[in-house]
Design a protein around this nucleic acid. Structure first.
Length: 576
RNA sequence: GCGCCGAUAGUGUAGUGGUUAUCACUAGGCGUUGCCAACGCCUAGACCCGGGUUCGAGUCCCGGUCGGCGCACCA
């Protein structure tokens, strides 16, 4: 156990030194907000992503899709990112501080800043004081800073594109294809793991705030009135501390309760959100996040996006950064689909058939088109449309066409009361969105795995990574680099590789040094071939965390190692 | 973006204007070594980038990049 508060330095140093994380294009001076994953980091990240796939693709049955990282402007106009992913900013002419213009307005008692355009806002804040140097601003220019990276598509083209700020939009714009793929019924989901981009003004904090980062997002399309997860029972009794909005406002500690109780007591909006809160908890623990450093925090009312019904963040405690938002689980209602339907002109609804057709009495207004057509000529179509929605009085119907109120006398239409059969509803599904920041997860895993203990009077650095995410799964050593021990060790390495195990062979230096090297990169097991191996065809297998050893038959090495890695066998059950 | 601080082998460091840039660890090779960073010999490896001052700059000055902290920002 280390007490040192600045574990970050040690973790990042190790990560850099041993090939987990590198500054990008370092020979040209690196770039803030971008990182390279080195050989071990890329492997570990891949393992984290694959565990995510186990949960969402294999277990939940939500297929993965892959969309471009660049999309045309229309997509982000519809999603609201072109307008809403930008901040109105200004620069103080005195101290050159960049300020959020709406914050300046708020500080100066100017109301309604959010809806003002740039010129109006600039005029409004001219008399306000700078939030930094407190001088009166005077004449300033208000400009938008959009966090999306902008680019142009095609040679000499004016066509604007943006690098996606989230993977989610790809799933929304593919909605009708996905719906068809899932044979037209709810619920269904699609997931995507990929890069997203945000042109952060000032990225800091190493791999916590990146300009290019990896997201794993699931978009689950559900019936708005049936937010009942079909497999909720899997997590109904799953219990964990929940920091609700109410607890936060009252400055009270989290409430520990089961998902069943959380839904029943309306702490969590519905079963879907609760289900993915619990699933996320299980997954984060599986990749090596300690439960006591994991909490689920509900968005406060002012934090919650206006369209969202509920949102919970999984936050992981970092010694360096405090509570870090790592996963967000939101009920986004029908916001995204409605927006894309409207902007694209594509119907994004699901037809839900009733078990039995309903007979519905419907009052219908049937215009007399032969008269209306002659009378209103070019306006006839508009009149027709307005009339069919009108509520006629006894002396006719008042309709509004092009801002003009027209009274249509009763003899120009007929009111029919009919019984019609309705076979179902067109509904816009709601979207449940669990969204994971893979890089943050990787950092958290590294930070929490980092440990130093004392072995034989020396400090031992060890990454206590779960075997499921450790980049190298097993190391194989010949005790001596001769007498055929190396041959046996190489044969074992080959046998392990045949089973799909990432095994590293190392014959350099003293055996203790080799163990330490593997400890530092989190390799959970090491197999050592010694002189007894030649006699009785056994080897030792050593456990990283306890440094204990057991003796197993050479022929059983691949099977034993696989079982240890997948958790079906625990090390202590092996005989020493 | 602003302010303050920092940057020397893979890592940690010494070096207050003057030879060929210090030391340790690490890494590679050879030897040795019978299970936890042992040892011997050998080898490799650095002044963040660009300007300036100076006879001479790792060292002083300016600008940039990256990192840390504070401010601001974080749909």
């Amino acid at each position: 156990m280390i007490t040192m508060s600045d574990i970050y330095e040690k973790v990042m140093d190790l990560a850099k030194r041993r090939g987990f994380i590198w500054p990008t294009s370092e020979c040209y001076g690196a770039m803030a907000g971008f990182i390279d994953y080195g050989p071990l980091g890329a492997m570990m990240k891949r393992r984290v992503e694959n565990i995510w796939r186990d949960f969402y693709v294999i277990e939940e049955g939500y297929y993965e899709i892959e969309c471009p990282t660049i999309a045309q402007e229309a997509v982000f106009v519809a999603s609201g990112h072109v307008k809403g992913f930008a901040d109105k900013m200004c620069q103080c002419p005195h101290c050159h501080e960049f300020l959020r213009a709406d914050h300046v307005a708020e500080g100066g008692g100017v109301a309604g800043a959010a809806t003002m355009d740039h010129e109006v806002l600039a005029a409004a804040i001219a008399s306000c004081r700078c939030l930094a140097c407190e001088k009166v601003l005077g004449k300033v220019e208000v400009f938008s800073f959009n966090l999306m990276f902008r680019t142009s598509i095609g040679p000499g083209s004016q066509r604007t594109g943006y690098l996606r700020p989230e993977t989610a939009q790809g799933m929304f714009v593919d909605f009708t294809r996905l719906l068809r793929f899932y044979r037209d019924h709810l619920p269904f989901g699609a997931v995507q793991i990929g890069k997203s981009y945000r042109n952060e003004i000032s990225p800091r904090q190493g791999m916590i705030r990146l300009r290019e980062f990896t997201q794993a997002e699931a978009e689950i399309f559900v019936h708005p009135e049936e937010k009942v997860h079909p497999r909720f029972s899997r997590y109904a009794e799953y219990t964990m501390p929940l920091l609700t909005a109410q607890q936060q406002q009252a400055k009270e500690p989290p409430l520990t309760m089961s998902m069943r109780d959380a839904v029943d007591n309306r702490v969590i909006a519905n079963e879907y959100v609760a289900y993915y809160v619990a699933l996320t908890h299980e997954m984060l623990v599986a990749i090596g996040i300690r439960p006591d450093r994991l909490r689920f925090r509900q968005h406060l009312p002012d934090e919650l996006a206006h369209y969202a019904a509920d949102c919970w963040d999984a936050e992981v405690y970092s010694d360096r950064f405090g509570w870090v938002e790592t996963v967000g689980i939101a009920d986004r209602t029908d916001y995204d689909l409605t927006a894309h339907a409207k902007h694209s002109g594509t119907k994004m609804t699901v037809f839900i058939q009733y078990s039995e057709p309903k007979k519905v009495r419907r009052r219908r207004i049937v215009p007399n088109m032969s008269v209306l057509g002659k009378q209103y000529r070019t306006k006839a179509k508009a009149v027709f449309e307005a009339l069919s929605k009108a509520v006629p009085g006894t002396d006719g119907a008042d309709i509004v066409v092009d801002g003009e109120t027209i009274r249509i006398p009763p003899d120009l239409y007929e009111i029919r009361d009919e019984m019609v059969e309705v076979r179902g509803d067109e509904i816009v599904p709601h979207v449940i969105e669990p969204s994971y920041g893979i890089d943050r997860m990787c950092y958290a895993v590294l930070e929490q795995a980092y440990d130093e203990d004392i072995a034989d009077g020396e400090t031992r650095t060890v990454l206590r990574l779960p075997s499921s995410v450790a980049p190298i799964q097993v190391a194989v050593f010949p005790l001596m680099n001769r007498d055929g021990l190396d041959t046996i060790a190489l044969e074992i390495t080959t046998a392990l590789r045949k089973e799909g195990v990432l095994a590293e062979y190392d014959d350099s230096g003293a055996i203790g040094r080799r163990y330490r090297r593997q400890d530092e990169i989190g390799t959970p097991y090491a197999v050592t071939v010694d002189y007894d191996s030649k006699e009785d065809h056994t080897v030792t297998i050593r456990d990283r965390d306890s440094m204990k050893q057991a003796r197993i038959a050479i022929t059983s090495v691949p099977q034993t190692v696989c079982a240890l890695i997948d958790g079906s066998l625990i090390f202590t059950s092996l005989s020493p």
